[in-house]
């Protein structure tokens, strides 16, 4: 499976944020999306998730035999940096609701408690209202909902910022274990995190996507190259 974006552009009034995005993402990899503040990372995600209407361009999923099909809502899981969960439900109720309405699309469903276990959410927290969950727990809940349905594409918008070190490490492990059979695109400002977790580094600048080849660079040289590429924007 491939996820192909072609000539995607998006502008707000006269400001062109995404100029001409052309990229092919491949299954089984975690892509680290880097870009400076205001480069348009969140805009790109919002466009892919169809929260924003694009001005131009297209994106679709291409299977092994090269057949293209439109991306539907179920293909995408989108995890935001500030986790949002329906405050009036308990963790268990949210999960039950989600599994109820997606019963057809969830393959090999597990029991609700098994899902909680997989996220290391404590038994005593499972029946608390989500409004009383801590930031980290809300984040786990959001991640859990997004991965149960096993989306083909997982978009993560700085999901590990503001998590404590233990939860962040758990999340990293989880993402590594999930990368098979899907495309994970991970936006972050933390270069070391991107280098540690991601298989490919993709830069968003000048409103375009471009991959940074690692080839035979060591990690210091690779870092320098990324910074240089991003800095170049200032002089452009």
């Amino acid at each position: 499976m491939k996820f192909v974006i072609e000539h995607l552009s998006k502008s707000f009034e006269k400001k062109q944020v995404l100029r001409d995005i052309n990229f092919t993402f491949e299954e089984g990899k975690i892509y680290g999306l880097l870009g400076r503040n205001g480069a348009g990372k969140t805009t790109l995600f919002n466009c892919l998730n169809r929260d924003l209407k694009v001005n131009n361009g297209n994106f679709y999923i291409e299977d092994e035999s090269g057949v293209r099909r439109e991306v539907v809502a179920n293909d995408i899981g989108y995890v935001l940096s500030t986790p949002t969960v329906p405050e009036f439900l308990t963790g268990r109720e949210f999960l039950k609701f989600f599994m109820d309405i997606n019963e057809k699309s969830i393959q090999n469903p597990k029991s609700i408690d098994a899902y909680f276990d997989s996220m290391s959410i404590d038994p005593e927290d499972r029946d608390k209202l989500l409004k009383d969950y801590s930031h980290g727990m809300k984040n786990k809940m959001q991640m859990l909902i997004n991965i149960i349905a096993q989306p083909n594409i997982l978009l993560l918008d700085e999901p590990l910022t503001s998590l404590d070190v233990v939860v962040a490490e758990e999340m990293k492990q989880l993402l590594r274990s999930l990368k098979r059979d899907r495309i994970t695109i991970f936006s972050t400002h933390i270069l070391d995190l991107a280098l540690d977790l991601c298989d490919e580094i993709v830069l968003l600048h000048h409103g375009e996507l471009e991959v940074v080849e690692k080839t035979d660079l060591d990690s210091k040289e690779f870092k320098d190259r990324i910074i240089a590429a991003l800095r170049e924007e200032e002089n452009a």
Binding site: A73, E87, F88
Partner: peptide
């Protein structure tokens, strides 16, 4: 505030039939 604000960030919730 208490429901759609969060659920609208999940793509499953935005399916037309739902």
């Amino acid at each position: 505030m208490n429901c759609d604000h969060s659920l609208l960030t999940y793509s499953f919730y935005k399916q037309p039939s739902f």
